[in-house]
Design a protein around this nucleic acid. Sequence first.
DNA 1: ACTTTGCTTGACACGATGTCAATTGACAAA
DNA 2: TTTGTCAATTGACATCGTGTCAAGCAAAGT
Lengths: 195, 195
Amino acid sequence: MSSAQPNTRTRILQSTLELLEASGGKSVRMSDIARHAGISRQALYLHFTKRSELLIAATHYLDEMKESDQRLLPSREAVSGAERLNVYIEAWGNYIPEIYGVAKALIAMGDNDREANEAWEKRMLDMRQGCLAAISALADDDQLTVEFSIDQATDILWTMLSVRNWEQFTLQCGWSQSEYVKRMQSLASQLFVRK
Amino acid sequence: MSSAQPNTRTRILQSTLELLEASGGKSVRMSDIARHAGISRQALYLHFTKRSELLIAATHYLDEMKESDQRLLPSREAVSGAERLNVYIEAWGNYIPEIYGVAKALIAMGDNDREANEAWEKRMLDMRQGCLAAISALADDDQLTVEFSIDQATDILWTMLSVRNWEQFTLQCGWSQSEYVKRMQSLASQLFVRK
DNA sequence: ACTTTGCTTGACACGATGTCAATTGACAAA
DNA sequence: TTTGTCAATTGACATCGTGTCAAGCAAAGT
């Protein structure tokens, strides 16, 4: 099905993602992307008016590729709130490394570019919904610790699971990806699940 | 003692801090700083060879002004490990808003500038020492939860208390500064202090 | 009087983004 | 075959921010 000659727009998006992934979030220039995609720098601007637009489109494209919607949907098999929390943390936690490159570039742009900032914030609010759902499931099961309101617990889980924190735990502290997931699950369970 | 006409270097540093604080981490240009300090843009480069050098100097200057060393030193009155942890969180937590402007600028620079990156990382490693000390005090008192090794607990506390997380809790989640401190204390105590 | 110090003015190079105009080559429709 | 259109190319150019350079000036120190 997928063609040997994907259309230019797609090639650009793929190149963008490859370069961002490879360079671990370092600044990738428009000219780099163009060269990698085998087109002129100017041709980029025929498809995307600004760098921010390209980055935003690249994140959407990545979502499509990885079918993130499905992955981040609450698992049907998760029977208890506690189990569901674990499933969510695992799904999201393992998604982070795959989006890290684009994410970092988008965050960096956000400091100067309003649209990039809004795009990233929107994404993060979506992800907050996932946290809220997990915490709510816990509350419905009467398993949520008394210390927190649903909102507070959601805020905390949301922040705990931020890309920045993943970056710090893995890249700075040297945790492996599987350690990261396991420990975040354990942390969340200690904090939020009543014993 | 302090003169009516502080020397130019100092005026530059003050201007830098004022502007960074005012603009909440938004990009402040060299020319902005020069204008605010009442000198020419070029004069900046007579005192600091690069923007990163200026930012780094500004953070050091800020430390001096706020006497951060003393503030972040473990309180002598803290008798138990648990109490000492609370004291540390309060001290650091209340320090963050004061350094937020420069911190954010320095972090942003770090993406492109090696020296800025190293400066910020060094700062963060210093702060990790504070976390380690607090956790160690807990362990010495036999109050540290069994779930974590000292290193792991330090990593977690360190990350919990990051500037980025403060930013998210206060600016995104809307927690007040005092709520922030109280809740971080409560979180830390739930996670690390054995009951 | 002379020199040094601290700053000014103005010009300029560089790197990256973003814009514009003229051109080419291919493919399709008449 | 001609005509038109589409996608991309080439090359020039504007803009912004950083950083450099040279010449000059004015006040202070000796």
